[in-house]
């Protein structure tokens, strides 16, 4: 999959990877998603927040795996046959995001995009670019770049430091 950062598709087109957390449908720009794999064996990483579920080895590269539901403080659910890891690249950092299902890759017109409505749960509000309305379907478009802010990184480091007796 092409990883080179591209400008937002002109002529009003959006290319999205649609995935599920619980029953809700989310979407991310396809330019940030490198690939989608089944949940691999993970190595637990001590001294990190609970949403860092572990480290994954993908063809010799090691990177952290984040449970998005925990990240958004959503209800936990055991993984099943549909559970997937989206390998994404955010800035310099590659990471895996655990999602409940990857539904499809779709193209849609920008016209269906709207800025985030006020009533969206505040847990995800910060990371939301907006919503995409496709008839009855409502996709929450995530801004992966905001998933880990500088403060967030500091928190991870702090969690590590606090592990120190």
């Amino acid at each position: 999959m092409d990883l080179t950062p591209q400008p937002a598709p002109p002529a009003g087109e959006l290319k999205l990877v649609v995935f599920k957390l619980l029953a809700e449908e989310f979407a991310a720009s396809i330019h940030q998603v490198r690939e989608v794999i089944r949940l691999p064996g993970l190595t637990r990483m001590p001294r990190t927040p609970a949403y860092v579920v572990g480290l994954m080895n993908l063809r010799g590269k090691v990177f952290p795996v984040i449970d998005l539901k925990r990240r958004f403080r959503m209800e936990a659910r055991a993984s099943d046959g549909r559970t997937r890891v989206m390998v994404v690249e955010v800035g310099e950092q590659a990471m895996g995001l655990v999602v409940d299902d990857v539904v499809e890759v779709l193209r849609t017109s920008r016209d269906h995009f709207e800025p985030p409505p006020a009533m969206i749960a505040e847990n995800t509000g910060l990371y939301l670019k907006g919503v995409v309305k496709l008839g009855e379907r409502l996709l929450l478009l995530l801004d992966l770049n905001r998933l880990f802010s500088a403060e967030e990184l500091a928190e991870i480091a702090r969690a590590g430091a606090e592990g120190k007796p």
């Binding site: 090691v62 950092q93 990184l153 480091a157 590590g160």
Partner: peptide, 21 residues
């Protein structure tokens, strides 16, 4: 990587012969 760089106590990771980390 950058995300976990600040976590104290670890000098990095290694991949074992069986692919585990």
């Amino acid at each position: 990587g950058g995300l976990l760089k600040g976590v104290r106590g670890f000098g990095g990771v290694t991949v074992l012969g069986d692919g585990r980390i």
